[in-house]
Design a protein around this nucleic acid. Structure first.
Lengths: 151, 151
DNA sequence: TGAAACCGTACCGTGCCGATGCTATATTCA
DNA sequence: TGAATATAGCATCGGCACGGTACGGTTTCA
């Protein structure tokens, strides 16, 4: 239904928080407290972000997380993919495993167009960086919304 | 999770089919047979499309549906909204009813940026017309995907 | 009058998301 | 060395929306 899951929301919040504090190591507990996010959920998300290498972890007392990727390089698409898996606008665009439920694939005369829209969506999400999110968050009256040009 | 529901898929298929046959009245049964789509589901979707006025219905024997809106005017966003309701990238962007679950709204420092992305997504979907889908479906190697400019 | 087709609504099962809990591992500090 | 802190990994569980089904009603035409 074209909606981000809460995991992604929490992931975005965490990453933006880490990007904001710079190199400082921040524990999941601190992020959860400051951003009013449920700690266990946040920890789950941070684990995934760690697994793909977007954040570094420091274990033990006074441990926590740091952002390893550059905010200008890290995109919304990256976060989504890391937290909730590859984006698939429709089942057809999912080449993997059991998702091959659609037996219409061969005769589907929309498939190509949908694939184009799918690519457009991915490009759109890949064009939004964490740095963008931060500047947009701080500027009170932020410019205008991202524009889309269908070419 | 950033995926269209099957209802929307069926809706797109139905609308594109109707756009392709022109002014001819086509029954849901025929569309279901030709496009290999489950008939009851297709009927549900066609009812919704009828309710918002994108298709006209002819009852009785030899009845069926016709597309009322112009394929160049009807967009992907229209279909999605008609079939599965308003698009909301996150709960915050949903101003209605019980969806106000996010108590972080006030202190959420990402909210504004997310809203911008949300608007960008809506514009993106609103820029894809049914006519686009049809030409894309017929042309084997269609131009390139829609581009996104984050400003 | 009966068949064909649309219309409306209600219902149910399943899969996924949101959420929780527990155990193991690693680091710091007293 | 032990206690406290914090991440790592996995397993489980409930709720809900989506996908699918069923039934009864209305309209039109042969």
């Amino acid at each position: 239904m074209l909606t981000l899951t809460r995991k992604t929301e929490y992931g975005l919040i965490a990453v933006c928080h880490l990007a904001q504090v710079g190199e400082k190591v921040v524990s999941a507990r601190d992020i959860a407290k400051e951003q009013a996010v449920p700690l266990p959920l946040l920890m789950n998300v941070l684990k995934r972000l760690h697994r793909v290498g977007y954040v570094a972890s420091v274990r033990g007392a006074h441990g926590g997380y740091t952002l390893t990727a550059a905010p200008e390089q890290l995109t919304l698409a990256d976060i989504i993919e890391a937290v909730e898996g590859p984006v698939h606008l429709v089942r057809c665009t999912n080449p993997s495993r059991t998702a091959r439920k659609c037996d219409r694939t061969a005769r589907c005369f929309i498939r190509r167009s949908v694939a184009q829209v799918h690519n457009g969506l991915r490009e759109f999400l890949g064009a939004v960086t964490i740095a963008d999110m931060l500047t947009g968050a701080q500027a009170p009256a932020a410019t205008d919304t991202p524009r889309v040009a269908t070419q």
